[in-house]
Amino acid sequence: MKNALKDMLKGIWKENPVLVLLLGTCPTLATTSSAANGLAMGLATTCVLCGSNLVISCIAGVVPKKIRIPVYIVVIATFVSAIDMLMKAYAPPAIYGALGIFIPLIVVNCIVLGRAEAFASKHSPLRSIFDGIGMGLGFSLALTLLGALREFISTGSVFEVKIITCWTTDFLLASAAPGAFIILGCILAAKNYFARRAAVKAGKLYVPPAGLDCRSCQICKLNDDE
């Protein structure tokens, strides 16, 4: 149980998928034009992540190694399509209207496949679910932060509530794609600055968490199986 909690918390800060692992950058940049969109995309991804992590950690023992990636993708795509249909049927139209176009994007989100390969296939179903929740929440948090910043800089409002009422002309750069890159870059710089300062204060050398940089990425090494 203690492990499970640890698995969950690490996704939120220490191994945050967007701010540390830099996974799933495409939906991060594309869907965060407003805080509400970012939050909705984050929560939908969290649901898929939990479901796919659970199923994949259950079947990982029997899936032949050579075809594990196609099998994982089929599992993920099934979850995404099912959630899409269920939301169309039961979610309020306003929510589906805002989210509908992003849901199919979740299939190609690297975080989902990344966690399946790097965590769920090697750990117990319970720990995998908690890993899914943690990673999903970390993803939601980062997306909401980026979305809120972009929405505020472009229109002066957050969650569609106007904070500065005299803000009449939209600053379009922030809500367009280039603004997403610039603001995400600023957030990453700030995150690294604070992480390094904390490390220096504690008298340690600042290194990225082991196994998280590109050199040790498992997905890239599909063809040289030992």
């Binding site: 023992g61 032949p64 190694k65 075809i67 099998v71």
Partner: peptide
């Protein structure tokens, strides 16, 4: 099954 490399088995599993 996990180490199987027979194309037919893999195709069937998929």
């Amino acid at each position: 099954l996990k180490e199987n490399e027979n194309v037919l088995v893999l195709g069937g599993f998929l």
